[in-house]
Simulated scan of single mutants.
Amino acid sequence: MSIIEKAASRIDRQRSAATASPVGQIEAAALHSATEIPTVTVADTVIHDTVHAIPAAPAIANEQPAAPKVSTRRVELDLARMRDLGMVTAAGGRTSLLEDFRIIKRPLLQRAFGERKPGEKPGNLIMVTSSLPGEGKTYTAINLAMSIAMELDHTVLLVDADVARPSVLRTLGLPPQRGLMDILVDDKLDMGDVLLRTNVDTLSILPAGTSTPRATELLASSTMSNLVNEIANRYPDRIVIFDSPPLLLTSESRVLASHMGQIVMVVEAQTTTQHAVKEALSQLEGFNNVNLIYNKTRDLPGIEETYDYHYG
């Protein structure tokens, strides 16, 4: 047998072995020139196998979305300290302040769950603001939240949205925490990661979070719109109180107002000028359901400060 015949015989034997296993097929194909048979690589085989594994995906698409994360973070409000500071507490007895806020909250609650016209913002989103600092807006927001928390049919979320100068936690004697701004900056954070449950079972707190120079843009973002809609609609009995920055000092308050169904403006008696009030109200032109709380009034000398509620 010639050398050529022996080589041909060896190739025939290799071809016969190739039919016995996939690995043999790949080795036999390698003996042929690239112009005769396309080269088969291990990568081609892996991709081929992966493509055939895809039919399992539709079952995943039909799964129910994960349930909202429930916050397990809890803080203890010092209710005795709050009572001593003149704040509303359930155990504080029947005080004139408690009665004032019972009057203040009633029309807000009625609007919160009343019929909404097309395009109107949810009425259970209530912003508390003022013209200038020091008029009592944070004090009012906390007392309003505490008063609504005493209702039998409602829960309250108190949001510190005064992101430039957060004061809700400080007023309550609590340390700073992550909160609203952190959710808007980090899309991996859920509200359940930063929400604070309290020892008042019907009251939760969303802190302002980490300060950022982009606060106005973040509050105007679609992420904020989605978050506001989520917290407004997740629980049908919820009232959401936003402690807002003063209207005449920052741009955040007007942006925040665009998300709100109701706005409460606190006016400090005998201190805030009529010009400041008019200028602040001009910032809210075009917004419905703007109400005024006339704060720190004295009816007679020596009589304790009271709250008087007016509609604007």
Score class of each variant (00 low, 15 high):
residue 1 M to S: 11
residue 2 S to T: 06
residue 2 S to A: 02
residue 3 I to M: 12
residue 4 I to H: 08
residue 4 I to M: 12
residue 5 E to P: 01
residue 6 K to T: 14
residue 6 K to F: 09
residue 12 D to W: 08
residue 12 D to F: 11
residue 14 Q to E: 13
residue 14 Q to V: 12
residue 16 S to C: 09
residue 22 P to R: 05
residue 22 P to G: 06
residue 23 V to A: 15
residue 25 Q to R: 11
residue 26 I to P: 00
residue 26 I to L: 08
residue 26 I to C: 02
residue 30 A to Q: 14
residue 31 L to M: 14
residue 36 E to L: 15
residue 39 T to V: 14
residue 40 V to F: 05
residue 43 A to V: 14
residue 43 A to C: 06
residue 45 T to Q: 12
residue 47 I to K: 10
residue 47 I to W: 09
residue 53 A to N: 11
residue 56 A to F: 06
residue 58 P to N: 04
residue 58 P to C: 06
residue 65 P to L: 06
residue 68 P to C: 02
residue 69 K to R: 11
residue 73 R to E: 12
residue 73 R to C: 06
residue 74 R to S: 13
residue 75 V to L: 05
residue 76 E to Q: 11
residue 78 D to K: 03
residue 81 R to H: 08
residue 81 R to M: 10
residue 81 R to A: 12
residue 85 L to I: 08
residue 85 L to F: 10
residue 89 T to C: 02
residue 91 A to F: 03
residue 92 G to T: 01
residue 92 G to F: 00
residue 94 R to D: 14
residue 95 T to G: 01
residue 97 L to C: 01
residue 99 E to A: 01
residue 103 I to M: 09
residue 104 I to G: 02
residue 105 K to G: 02
residue 105 K to R: 10
residue 112 A to S: 05
residue 113 F to M: 05
residue 113 F to A: 06
residue 114 G to C: 02
residue 115 E to A: 14
residue 117 K to E: 14
residue 120 E to F: 07
residue 120 E to A: 15
residue 121 K to E: 13
residue 129 T to H: 04
residue 131 S to V: 08
residue 133 P to G: 02
residue 136 G to N: 00
residue 138 T to E: 00
residue 143 N to E: 09
residue 143 N to V: 09
residue 144 L to A: 04
residue 150 M to W: 05
residue 152 L to M: 13
residue 153 D to K: 09
residue 155 T to C: 07
residue 158 L to G: 06
residue 160 D to V: 07
residue 161 A to D: 04
residue 162 D to K: 06
residue 163 V to T: 13
residue 166 P to M: 08
residue 166 P to V: 07
residue 167 S to Y: 04
residue 168 V to R: 00
residue 168 V to K: 00
residue 173 G to P: 05
residue 174 L to H: 01
residue 177 Q to A: 05
residue 180 L to C: 09
residue 183 I to E: 01
residue 186 D to I: 06
residue 186 D to M: 02
residue 190 D to R: 11
residue 192 G to D: 06
residue 207 P to K: 00
residue 207 P to V: 01
residue 209 G to P: 00
residue 210 T to H: 09
residue 213 P to V: 12
residue 217 E to N: 07
residue 218 L to I: 14
residue 219 L to C: 04
residue 219 L to G: 01
residue 220 A to E: 09
residue 223 T to L: 11
residue 225 S to D: 11
residue 225 S to A: 14
residue 229 N to R: 04
residue 230 E to C: 07
residue 234 R to G: 05
residue 234 R to F: 07
residue 237 D to H: 08
residue 239 I to D: 04
residue 239 I to G: 03
residue 240 V to N: 03
residue 241 I to Q: 00
residue 245 P to A: 07
residue 252 E to Y: 03
residue 255 V to H: 03
residue 256 L to Y: 02
residue 258 S to Q: 08
residue 265 M to F: 06
residue 270 Q to C: 13
residue 271 T to G: 08
residue 271 T to I: 10
residue 272 T to N: 10
residue 272 T to F: 08
residue 273 T to P: 01
residue 274 Q to K: 11
residue 276 A to R: 01
residue 277 V to L: 13
residue 279 E to P: 05
residue 280 A to W: 02
residue 281 L to I: 15
residue 282 S to A: 15
residue 283 Q to L: 13
residue 284 L to D: 02
residue 288 N to H: 10
residue 293 I to Q: 01
residue 293 I to R: 01
residue 293 I to L: 14
residue 303 I to A: 15
residue 304 E to G: 11
residue 305 E to Q: 13
residue 306 T to R: 15
residue 307 Y to S: 15
residue 311 Y to C: 12
residue 311 Y to H: 12
